[in-house]
């Protein structure tokens, strides 16, 4: 990561408690402009609370933050003029149509009636909700809602966008659409702070990742560094003929690394985090004439990352009491 790029988000020592729950217990963030920065953590880690503080929805108990150089406390209005929030709950008005939602935001942001309508039409088409634009949002599918939600966040293109678990609960197709939209936004110059529970999502999108647990940043780095620190992905191979598994194990053992036989008599797994080594392994199998039914390169899960980083599995909703004990 370049350290001299100007920072879009700079937070120091952010803290927030709700009663006895220390939701955020001292978070520092430095997000360079024009990047997607991932905040990765399990349910209850404090991700949403961090975003809500940065978007000026709630005031931190301690610490400070600047968004595009504006202090969230002293200059909240200027911050709101530059950011937009796509909350965990797809914050669109269910009792309005998709089009009305977008026109409403356009008007609130200062577009004329005509400009708001034109802009809505453009977004509805680009996000493929034009057909459903006259229906009430409560009848939308999860993917459509999420796309409308993101469209609503870019009626006027923000400088900084907060995306809070944008693909949780979505099917793979809708998830890909959301990822594509996020990439297009960054290509257009927007900085994205992405909260997610999925290492894969952070890996796909983010240039830098902060792993948070119990309201604290416990690791920071590029996706590659994080995965390397965990040490392992895995190449999964299924053979056409289970009888040739010993042979395949020998080939992969030489070409890639330690082989593990799976309960499925046709399948084996090789620990491997390097895609090129994995490709070589598959090619060697093909050269040896061992028929492959399917193969995939799996990534370490968030659970594995957590286990490696903290020595405990990711748990949900930690409380102060648990932390103290």
């Amino acid at each position: 990561m370049t350290t001299h790029a100007p920072l879009a988000i700079e937070a120091t020592g952010l803290e927030k408690s709700f009663g006895a729950t220390r939701a955020v217990a001292g978070v520092d963030l430095a997000v360079p402009e024009g990047a997607i920065y991932g905040v990765l953590g399990p349910n209850g880690a404090g991700k949403t609370t961090v975003i809500r503080m940065l978007a000026t929805l709630i005031a931190p108990d301690a610490g400070s933050a600047r968004v595009m150089g504006h202090d969230i406390h002293a200059d909240g209005d200027a911050v709101r003029g530059l950011v937009s929030l796509t909350g965990q709950l797809a914050s669109v008005d269910e009792e309005l149509t998709g089009r009305e939602n977008l026109v409403l935001l356009g008007r609130l942001l200062g577009l004329s009636r005509r400009a708001a309508k034109a802009r809505s039409q453009e977004l509805l088409e680009a996000f493929e909700i034009a057909e459903a634009s006259g229906r009430l949002v409560k009848h939308y599918s999860g993917g459509m809602r999420r796309r409308l939600d993101i469209a609503a966040s870019i009626v006027v293109t923000p400088r900084v966008m907060f995306l809070d678990e944008p693909t949780t609960g979505l099917d793979p197709r809708s998830r890909n659409q959301v990822w594509e939209i996020a990439r297009a936004l960054v290509a257009g110059g927007t900085t994205i702070l992405l909260c997610t529970q999925y290492l894969e999502e952070a890996d796909q999108l983010a240039d830098g990742i902060a792993v948070i647990d119990r309201g604290r940043v416990i690791a920071e780095g590029t996706p590659g560094q994080l995965k390397a620190s965990v040490g392992a992905g895995a190449l999964h191979v299924r053979l056409l003929d289970p009888g040739r598994r010993p042979e395949a194990a020998a080939v992969l053992g030489r070409a890639v690394g330690a082989v593990e036989l799976e309960p499925d008599p046709a399948a084996l797994t090789v620990s491997c985090s390097d895609a090129e080594r994995a490709a070589t392994g598959v090619a060697e199998l093909a050269r040896a004439g061992v028929g492959i039914a399917e193969f995939s390169l799996g990534q370490p899960s968030l659970d594995e990352v957590f286990l490696a980083l903290t020595g405990h599995m990711a748990e949900s909703d930690h409380t102060l009491e648990e932390q103290a004990s």
């Binding site: 004329s112 870019i154 809708s174 297009a184």
Partner: peptide, 24 residues
Amino acid sequence: TTAGGADTAAVRRAIASTERPPRP
């Protein structure tokens, strides 16, 4: 296009085309 079908070129155009209007 992506596998999902969102029209990437249109999305990029839609993102590029706005200037922040004066506040109402």
